[in-house]
Design a protein around this nucleic acid. Structure first.
Length: 109
DNA sequence: AACCTAATCACTA
DNA sequence: TAGTGATTAGGTT
């Protein structure tokens, strides 16, 4: 049988991967989706938004696949997004006008 | 190049 | 059961 990578809720996998992302690197919803074998990029965001209930999930390391920050804390392009940009810059990620150097910081599994 | 639409999957109430 | 949602890709203008 095909080992269905569905051991736990998708959220659990996403959280695990998020914590697996090294500091100074970012990942995209698509990347996570492919890593988990799912094509619902939206479900990934929902998993982060519905985090287990603890800010222990660096959801700020997950961005859109086009380099945009996507969203943060459940808001798209809001004020929280500014914090996200700040956090990434602090981690060492160079951001260019609300865009991240994906080819340089995109995290590869 | 930029913008818009449609399709997709998972989770919650 | 039905609806929403941190998206993505492609086509058109």
């Amino acid at each position: 049988m095909k080992t269905n990578p569905k051991m736990s809720s998708l959220a659990e996998q996403v959280h695990s991967l998020c914590q697996n992302i090294p500091k100074g690197k970012v990942t995209t919803y698509k990347n996570i989706g492919e890593a988990l074998g799912v094509r619902s990029y939206r479900a990934i965001g929902q998993a982060l938004r519905r985090s287990p209930g603890m800010p222990f999930v660096p959801c700020h390391r997950v961005i859109c696949s086009n380099g945009s920050l996507g969203g943060f804390k459940g808001k798209l392009g809001g004020k929280e997004i500014g914090e996200k940009r700040r956090l990434l810059e602090k981690e060492g990620v160079r951001i260019n006008e609300s865009k991240v150097d994906l080819p340089k910081y995109k995290w590869r599994f």
